[in-house]
Design a protein around this nucleic acid. Structure first.
Length: 284
DNA sequence: TTTTATGT
């Protein structure tokens, strides 16, 4: 008799709890996607459901988003918008910081003696100049950092980032940048190929998109072992190729026809690449 | 005013 009443009450409470959790979760998700939409264009990268290595969760920062993989212990992509409205002075470089959202401990000191640089994906300068101090500090979170060989990070990659800020952003006014690592096809190669817990990529990609009715796109893929003074256009690839290598789908909210046009082949017309492809780096 | 590591 009494037992049945207790059961009924319990069931009702669980029911109310579930409804509450669902509503709260829905509200959270709604608000979170509003925040994300403000930081991107045509959605954030989505993963191929058949490829667990491309699964990730989104970390939201001031000025940029990070697709974080707890399997690779690495960001799979970062995404940020740039516009031609730069601050004239930017603050000093902050210290690298542990990001407590990553679960696996990735310490700022963890790269010491590894032969790899702590390479930014979302760059210090661009984030600081366009999005301000909080974004700059967030760019030094270890969730935004991947192991990069010094000749890539300080030379070729630096030249590409400089071309983005000094050439492409002024040229087009607004730019969406998606950038990230590319890993060896064979996951077993990555199990021990790590700096601390962080898997070491084979190469890196950077996708530039000019938002608009008929968007323009340009994409690069650069391996770890470069000298650093190569012409930037040696590394052009189609976005489709990057999708094939990463298991990610970029700009998922763009309609199929536009995606096909934008992603299937390399189109350099209008970018003025020849003006920047051979510019020397800042730290030769 | 654009990158980092250095048992400094």
């Amino acid at each position: 008799m009494k037992k049945r009443m207790v059961w009924r009450r319990l069931r009702r409470q669980v029911g109310i709890g579930l409804v509450f959790a669902t509503v709260a979760g829905g509200l959270w998700y709604f608000q979170e996607s509003e925040y994300r939409d403000r930081l991107t264009w045509k959605g954030t990268p989505e993963w191929d459901s058949m490829a667990p290595l491309s699964w990730h969760r989104v970390l939201r920062n001031d000025g940029f988003l990070v697709g974080w993989s707890d399997v690779r212990v690495s960001p799979l992509w970062v995404s940020y918008l740039l516009h031609d409205d730069k601050r004239s002075r930017i603050a000093e470089r902050p210290d690298f910081q542990r990001d407590w959202r990553t679960i696996w401990p990735v310490q700022p000191t963890g790269y010491r003696g590894s032969g790899y640089d702590r390479g930014h994906l979302a760059p210090n300068y661009a984030l600081a100049a366009v999005h301000g101090r909080d974004a700059q500090q967030a760019s030094f979170l270890m969730s935004n950092i991947t192991p990069q060989r010094p000749d890539l990070n300080r030379r070729l990659w630096q030249r590409l980032e400089e071309a983005v800020m000094d050439h492409f952003v002024p040229r087009f006014d607004q730019l969406l940048v998606i950038t990230g690592p590319i890993f060896h096809d064979d996951f077993s190669r990555g199990v021990l190929n790590r700096v601390g817990f962080v898997e070491i990529p084979e190469a890196f990609y950077k996708i530039l998109v000019v938002p608009g009715e008929t968007p323009r796109g340009l994409a690069f893929m650069m391996p770890q072992d470069v000298k650093g003074d190569e012409p930037l256009d040696d590394f052009l690839v189609s976005i489709d190729e990057i999708e094939a290598r990463t298991g990610l789908d970029f700009l998922p909210a763009l309609n199929a026809e536009q995606q096909q046009r934008l992603e299937s082949r390399i189109r350099t017309e209008g970018w003025g690449l020849e003006q920047v492809a051979d510019l020397p780096g800042r730290y030769e």
